[in-house]
């Protein structure tokens, strides 16, 4: 099963789910929202000598077992137990920390190769760097940045919501058109240095040249269309990437 975890407003997660199901109706794809996790009928996570495990039973009765999950695409950035806001603020904060700590550990039981955008202790939403860090790493990777470093904290003045060019690095493969003056190797190096297996890089045109302005582990999936869908289906069906060597390439791509 390919499991997409997301927030209710995440249209790109919904797009991804729909397009994967259209491309391969036999491929099990499940999209689960933050709210479904928060209101799960049961969540159980165990650690011990016999191994680490989890199971989640949603309110609709759907059960998610660790061993049924081949790949997770994590689009959660924080689980917010909103119903607890009715209580004492300290209680709400406590529950919020407990639930996020639980899901960090629960997702960490999956091997790294099965988890796109793995959560970190800093953020359930994966690799969390401030803009100054992304740009610092970009320079180290060989990407040009604007000379005004570090950028001001109020990013709306330096980074527009829609970049001029965006490219996606997924498991060391580059999707999208690289802007002139930028090398694929530098983009791949940035993803590698930032330890992100799913990273969207943003560029702005300044005068005649393009500069790197930032990156996100929450890519706009629809921007990459069929190229991304094919790559993900290939990842799902090519067992060597997931440690299931008995699986062979998906018939559509064999």
């Amino acid at each position: 099963m390919l499991l997409i975890l997301c927030h209710l407003h995440d249209v790109d997660a919904a797009w991804l789910c729909q397009r994967l199901q259209q491309a391969d109706p036999d491929m099990p794809v499940l999209i689960v929202s933050m709210d479904e996790l928060l209101f799960a009928r049961e969540v159980t996570h165990t650690l011990g000598r016999v191994g680490n495990d989890f199971s989640i039973t949603l309110q609709n009765g759907r059960r998610i077992e660790k061993n049924d999950v081949s790949v997770v695409i994590n689009r959660l950035y924080h689980l917010d137990p909103v119903v607890w806001k009715q209580t004492d603020p300290r209680q709400y904060q406590y529950v919020s920390q407990e639930i996020n700590a639980l899901y960090l550990s629960l997702l960490h039981t999956l091997e790294a190769a099965r988890l796109y955008n793995p959560p970190t202790p800093v953020s359930l939403g994966g690799r969390h760097l401030v803009l100054a860090e992304w740009q610092l790493l970009a320079v180290r990777a060989g990407l040009p940045i604007s000379p005004d470093w570090p950028p001001p904290e109020d990013t709306q003045f330096v980074v527009p919501a829609i970049p001029d060019v965006r490219v996606l690095v997924l498991d060391g493969q580059l999707l999208g058109s690289i802007p002139p003056g930028i090398t694929a190797e530098a983009c791949l190096t940035l993803a590698r240095q930032s330890e992100a297996n799913l990273l969207e890089l943003h560029f702005l045109q300044q005068d005649a040249a393009y500069v790197f302005v930032g990156a996100t582990v929450f890519p706009t999936f629809h921007h990459y269309g069929d190229e991304l869908i094919h790559l993900l289906i290939n990842r799902m069906s090519n067992g060597s990437d997931l440690g299931y060597t008995e699986r062979i390439a998906h018939p559509a791509f064999a």
Partner: peptide
């Protein structure tokens, strides 16, 4: 920030961790 998350690193370095249930 997450004790069971940390416990998974602990296990990888040869230590035992107590049998744990979170539910």
């Amino acid at each position: 920030n997450s004790k069971p998350y940390q416990a998974q690193f602990i296990q990888q370095h040869g230590f035992l961790t107590p049998d744990t249930l979170i539910t």
